[in-house]
Amino acid sequence: MVTAGFLNSYCQRNKQSKMDCNKFQARIIFLHDEELTENEKKEMMEHMKGCADCTMAFAALSEALSILAQEKEILPNPYLFSKIKTRLNSASPDKRPTKTVFARLQPTIFILLLIISVYTGTSLGHSFSKQIEIQSYTDEIALYINEMQTEPLENFLLEQ
């Protein structure tokens, strides 16, 4: 049976080791780069002996830094100078400013076009709704005239 005292001491130990792990994991990179004092280094090595999780975290970080070290081995293009020379000979320096001016104006032109299209859309929508209103009004008048028994022109002639 698990007693309260045992649980208490277990939690205490766990809490203690968790703190150590946090402290360890906050300094792994400095251990890797050998930027710690002898005492700190010894303390961290001791911790690693009893903690598989921290050992794995150290391995992961070392691996990451070794990827960076491998990138140092990549060499530049051997034809770099020829490529530069070709570009220098073919490039016309006065082309650049035009491109930059256009690039700078691009967002403004885009916003202007957007405003113009929104305005055109709105005014087209308005005139369309007015047309519908006029149409429905004339329809109403036409209906009245059609519903008359006699034409107003006939009445006028009869009266005369």
Partner: peptide
């Protein structure tokens, strides 16, 4: 050195080559 600076920042060999050319130009 120029290539390694460019490569370290952009992480791509072709882009780093192009950038190296731009730098020297």
């Amino acid at each position: 050195q120029v290539f390694h600076i460019c490569y370290a920042i952009v992480h791509n060999q072709d882009d780093a080559d192009d950038l190296s050319q731009d730098v020297f130009i």
